[in-house]
Amino acid sequence: MTNPIAQLIKVTKTYYFGDQPFHALQGVSLSIYPNDFLAIIGPSGSGKSTIMHLTGILDVPSQGRILFKGRDVTKLNDSQLAKIRNQQIGFVFQQFFLLSYLNAIDNVALPLVYAGVPLAKRRQLAIKMLEKVGLKDKIYNRPNQLSGGQQQRVAIARALINKPSLVLADEPTGNLDSVSGRQVLKLFADLHKQGHTIVIVTHDPQVAKITRKQVHLKDGKIIKIN
């Protein structure tokens, strides 16, 4: 059996609101394997976004271990973590998080800036990636000149530009109308067919349907995997 890309081992995450502890995750274990197409599904407050942040090593667990390709991420320093986020992980957010003062090409190319790729090469790769997500004629548009669905496709192109091992999408259709939402989900399904490993965090069972595997969360615990 192949090794997992990311592994959460008995992970607990506790937030404090004043003196009041809130256990967002309680002893969660989860492995993500190459070419997985996974939905993490649960109601608001179930801890699904926390799983995504921990898997994407944007945050550290209160207890337990997180392994990324076998390396314990809690033992890595800032620049090692930054390198993993840059090279191994692609993020897609509900609010797109595109930089308003950059056009589509430069938004998509942003991870390549931190990878040290020269400008001309960056633009070339970004244009190719925008073509792949169906935005060939919008490459010079700024975010405010794009529809919500188009913005999310720019964000997906940005997530894919460094050929990551893992794509993490947090409610990617949450801010989209149903038509755009369906297009974005179809794009994810196509990307999975091309061999990408994709994790979608959602509260919407309809979204979860397109994935191969669903992890159900409730009150910070995994209650069902199917």
Binding site: G56, D78, S79, A82, R85, N86, F91, Y114, R158
Partner: peptide
């Protein structure tokens, strides 16, 4: 702040 968070998520180090 959100731009900074995004840049970090995309691979920017503290130093960057």
């Amino acid at each position: 702040i959100r731009e900074i968070g995004l840049r970090k998520a995309l691979g920017a180090t503290k130093k960057d």
